[in-house]
Nucleic acid binder design. Structure first.
Lengths: 183, 183
DNA sequence: GAAGATAGTGATTGGCCACTAACTTGGAAG
DNA sequence: CTTCCAAGTTAGTGGCCAATCACTATCTTC
């Protein structure tokens, strides 16, 4: 039950990823996060300075986690083979949709923050994203257009998952062999 | 000043698109929408049964509007030419980011609704999306993979706009000639 | 086993917000 | 000019939620 503050923070971040993924920043109460952690709501404010800080930690973790998935899937591979391995790994994430949705929540939250004047949070999010993009780009061979293509398909997958298209729906057919340029 | 209920509803929908785009569903108060319309907040509830209904109207309008942009841009064209025309038109939307962001807000809101048990809203959103997808697919020649590609790039554009990458950032370079398959 | 530190809780509060009810204003038709 | 309806407002309510404060429990160290 009782654990160190660092361990608690860790479980808060994990719980926050799930709750924020489903409810968004405004739609998630700190109460809900605390309940998932199994701890009282006020205690969250001992571990983090505020709700915003919890969200930021979850967002950063989400991007790290995504790279970890890509990295493991494509270990030792390069170019086309790496791209295919990572695509497959990303499709696997469709199962636990929370990871994908946390990404989208990050994007719209950044926009909301920017719309109300807070630009610093946008800068750090762009750094995170660009870092992921660059690592992927290098891994698949360095071509800018290939990397763009890769991320574009990822973003479409996020959207289809958000809308809840079932895996056997015809809308998913367009992904078949989409990485093959040779006919 | 004074106008018919129907005209008012119209201006509410337009104001709602902007406000929801920037704040999301939970992050937008009916107060903010009313202020933008130039009308008292309680009056919104005469024009619409509730906040949810306003959001749905704005979401539907957003998808219609997107097709209108595509349709006008590609009038009389087909295949590759139509795809290029529509891509260009979509890039034009990057300027008034509200349209793009309203789309993303729709996606995450649908997911949130589904996560809390309301599936009907997901069904109608999927119908809207699929309708748009199909119309675009037909217009660019009917190929499923081309349509997937087209929408994938659209979703990536949405993301980059949300994160606020400036138009001259190198991250946008990957879009150059991305529609050309012939080298 | 006392003392200090660290993990954690219960009660509360002030502010915001969706929504309601009751009332007022404008304008068109007879 | 008056009557009547649709357009619109002011005032209010109940619920939710982030954050605070004062407190308790448990571990560690000597």
């Amino acid at each position: 039950m009782r654990m160190s503050a660092e361990e608690r923070r860790e479980s808060v971040v994990r719980a926050a990823m799930i709750e924020f993924a489903r409810g968004g920043y405004r739609g998630t109460s700190t109460e809900a996060i605390a309940r998932r952690v199994g701890v009282s709501q006020p205690y969250l404010f001992r571990l983090f300075p505020g709700k915003q800080a919890i969200f930021e930690a979850a967002a950063e973790r989400c991007v790290e986690e995504t790279w970890r998935v890509f990295d493991e899937a494509s270990a030792g591979l390069t170019g086309e083979a790496a791209a295919e391995a990572m695509s497959g790994a990303y499709m696997g994430l469709v199962e636990d949709r929370d990871q994908l949705m946390m990404q989208m929540q990050l994007y719209v939250s950044v926009f909301a923050a920017r719309a109300s004047g807070e630009e610093e949070i946008g800068e750090s999010a762009r750094r995170l994203w660009e870092g992921l993009f660059e690592r992927v780009r290098i891994r698949i061979g360095g071509d800018m257009r290939d990397a763009t293509q890769f991320f574009a398909h990822g973003m479409l997958i996020n959207t289809l998952v958000a809308l809840g298209f079932p895996p056997d729906h015809r809308i998913w057919n367009g992904f078949d062999d989409t990485c093959d340029k040779a006919e």
